[in-house]
Write a protein that binds this DNA or RNA. Sequence first.
DNA 1: CTTAGGATCGCCT
DNA 2: GGCGATCCTAAGC
Length: 192
Amino acid sequence: MRPTYLLAHIDFHAPAPEVARQLIGVTVLVDGVGGRIVEAEAYDREDPASHSFSGPTPRNASMFGTPGRAYVYRSYGIHWCLNFVCREAGHGAGVLIRALEPTHGIARMKARRGVEDVRLLCSGPGRVGQALGIDRGFDGLALDSPPFVLHPREEEPPIVTGPRIGITKARDVPWRFGLAGSRFLSRPFPKA
DNA sequence: CTTAGGATCGCCT
DNA sequence: GGCGATCCTAAGC
């Protein structure tokens, strides 16, 4: 049996798609600001679409680090995107947090984002980063201690799956997970 | 509704 | 030199 590392009832030693599924409905806060995860995508070492596919670099080093920590990367030279590292140390797997349903610190997120519409606060990975005040300084931080707080979900929610967004490789892999019916998804899921 | 272009960083070829 | 795990704005149908 593989070992487990439970945090907010999530097994961070599990494969990335499983962790992504477990994360839907979990609340993530950074300095008290955040919301419920409604959308996440899995990335694995043996995955052409993953940053870890070609091995460690300075940029993706924390993806090869300890599970249950953050992997933060700069997207298109502009946005900061938040991932949760999973599997065993050195493996190179993680889950991209793509969208939250805002629940905590909404005024703060509106100010950071420069928008009033709650639906535009955290509906997309770049938006999540900006709303939560994420930058390079958060890369590698443990998710079980400040500024991070994770609250477990109370029940397993209805989950939809589909192909990942914005990638050109491995488009057929259905490793995008979402809360069914949520108004806060970055984009709708394709019908069955 | 859809499409196009710009901003701009890290790593690859 | 090219290309992203993106977002915003503007323009076209």
